[in-house]
Design a protein around this nucleic acid. Structure first.
Lengths: 230, 230
DNA sequence: GAGAATTTGTTCGTATGTATC
DNA sequence: TGATACATACGAACAAATTCT
């Protein structure tokens, strides 16, 4: 586990449960722990070198976040991804991302266009080097830009709960085939262009088109993964 | 604490942390524990007759749900309601409720109109008997009907995280003055009418108008409540 | 500013319920 | 069906940090 020293030099006590939560989340999101697989408190606790207390608290948090499925008196599982989730994630995301885009453009922050541009470049770079993790993170980062500029804490919080399952989905589908990333990049360019010109409606329309494309792309590659019975 | 016997007669073990979570949530939502007030683990644990373990897990859950504010190595507080929250809650709610209304109407379930009608009657009844708790619950219940019929688990989950703070807001503002409930009832009638006729766009428009009215109503009565420093 | 009191963070032992043979 | 192994749920004591006097 890491030491209690922050990146700004100041001493920052990161509680055990916090470190444990982040690490389990990382393992789930990166696919190190696969959807549907069993999670044992004692096993994790021993692996981390901590007691079961912090692990329990971490699992509670991740359960509320939707990444962990918990069966009372039985155990925990990495939340399985169902076909239904693809529909839910993308419809809900379209709904809140429209709000994010509109609010971000209305604030007319100069940093928005610049950050969008950098995010597109980052994605293009990741595609040339064929780094799967970077590709997914770049894609997520592009869209996160709007949420960051929306000045809306709860909106960011909801986005965060959607972003993790989306990372898992994108990783699963890109592993199974070779998605059409050029269309994705094109979509991002279109969105960024509309954002640069401050055209709110055009930016929303481009975003919704882009999301619909992404949805159908992911949907065609996701296999049904059953929930462990009981 | 309650006994492990479910209402269907079967034995249902409700874990301590579950009961504790529900009870703390109830106290916060009903205003029994006021926003900004300190929460002491030991105090709650003794009051419930349990150890601090289940209480800690409950507080973690409620923290993720946004009802509890937690300061590391210091303590927990009932999440304070800020002016900013009113804007965030109602803009985000408008966004997802449009999705809920559209999906509910597209499914064209016969039960929808009937349940909306009953919810309106329940609100009218609550207003005549002047039962504050019932009034708030009836209002929330009316809107929940769309979410229940939207066939969208994540949408319901997000709504649930908004509904609790909204209950607190409505309670605070109705305590401070005498809101114009007749307009609220009128709004519900308009929405229910459009839903009965299956007019999706009209129903969405009526809903958004209604929410804007509710927002301005609440906003005018909410006082600034500061976050505890540090 | 030092020390006591308070409160949270953590560990570990035990109880209880579940699954399996 | 019954016994056994296993994992989680809970309680109580200890450790560490913050606040207050």
């Amino acid at each position: 586990m890491s030491e209690p020293v922050g990146n700004d030099g100041a001493v920052v006590y990161r509680e055990r449960w916090e470190v444990v939560t982040e690490e389990i989340r990382r393992r789930i999101v990166t696919g190190e722990m696969l959807p549907g697989s069993r999670i044992r408190e004692t096993e994790l606790a021993e692996g981390f070198g901590v007691s079961r207390g912090p692990v329990r608290e971490a699992l509670r948090i991740l359960e509320v976040a939707g990444l962990v499925l918990r069966v009372p008196r039985h155990g925990s599982y990495v939340a399985p991804v169902r076909r239904r989730d693809v529909d839910e994630l993308y419809t809900l995301r379209a709904s809140i991302e429209e709000l994010a885009v509109r609010r971000a453009l209305r604030r007319a922050d100069a940093g928005l266009a610049a950050q969008l541009g950098r995010a597109v470049e980052r994605l293009e770079m990741a595609l040339t080097t064929e780094a799967p993790f970077e590709v997914v993170e770049s894609d997520i980062d592009f869209h996160s830009t709007f949420y960051r500029h929306a000045d809306h804490d709860r909106l960011v919080a909801v986005w965060a709960t959607l972003a993790d399952p989306l990372r898992i989905l994108m990783r699963l589908s890109s592993r199974r085939s070779d998605p059409d990333w050029s269309t994705t990049v094109g979509g991002h360019l279109l969105i960024a262009s509309a954002a640069r010109e401050g055209d709110e409606d055009a930016c929303v329309e481009a975003t919704l088109d882009h999301l619909e494309h992404a949805r159908s792309l992911v949907l065609s590659f996701v296999e049904q993964q059953e929930i462990p019975e009981r």
